[in-house]
């Protein structure tokens, strides 16, 4: 499946993702930032497809580009008097240095490590990822799977309790 189209797609999608991510940092409006974030998420989902992880790509679109982004929009809309200008803190220059150094370090390590790669990287090792992930979740990873479900329930209850009206009265 290593066709030139895939390679082109990879580079285009990588560029799209990184550019949108940069735009998240650049744009002046927080709502716009969320929109660019969604674009970046979709780019990542596309990258997953080129890496033959179709199931994860779908999940990525559903959860990140769908649910989480909507949550963020809600959070922004529910905090109307807060700043909407996507401004930076006063010391963003040293932080950009730190971030750059981190990126450089990771790139250096990534390029200089002897990865135990598969012999023939031209072909994907997966036939049908959804079925394989399903089997993996229910056989070797059944315990983490159950724990994850408990975590989700707890997070849901926690979020409800946190934003429930009535906390207001307690606070005031």
């Amino acid at each position: 499946m290593e066709q030139p189209a895939v390679i082109v797609a990879f580079y285009v999608l990588a560029g799209l993702t990184l550019l949108s991510a940069l735009m998240v940092a650049m744009v002046r409006d927080l709502i716009h930032a969320v929109l660019f974030l969604i674009l970046s998420f979709i780019g990542v989902a596309g990258l997953y497809v080129t890496l033959s992880a179709d199931f994860v790509a779908v999940v990525q679109v559903l959860i990140y580009a769908g649910a989480i982004s909507v949550l963020m929009l809600f959070a922004i809309l529910l905090t109307p008097r807060s700043s909407r200008d996507n401004s930076s803190v006063s010391y963003s220059a040293p932080i950009s240095v730190v971030a750059g150094l981190i990126g450089a370090t990771i790139v250096y390590v990534a390029l200089n490590t002897e990865w135990a790669k598969t012999a023939d990287s031209s072909d994907s090792p997966f036939e049908n990822t959804a079925a394989e992930i399903g089997k993996a979740l229910l056989d070797p990873y059944v315990l983490p799977f159950e724990v994850a479900s408990v975590l989700l329930v707890i997070a849901m209850i926690g979020a409800i309790i946190l934003v429930r009206p009535g906390n207001e009265e307690d606070a005031s």
Binding site: T17, A99, A110, S121
Partner: peptide
């Protein structure tokens, strides 16, 4: 052709952009 290093470099760049955003946003 795509190799692991390509993916890792994209990941590293994305990570550092994310880190910058996480540490510098006011909101």
């Amino acid at each position: 052709m795509i190799s692991l290093e390509h993916v890792l470099v994209v990941g590293a760049l994305l990570f550092s952009i994310g880190l910058f955003i996480a540490l510098s946003r006011r909101n």
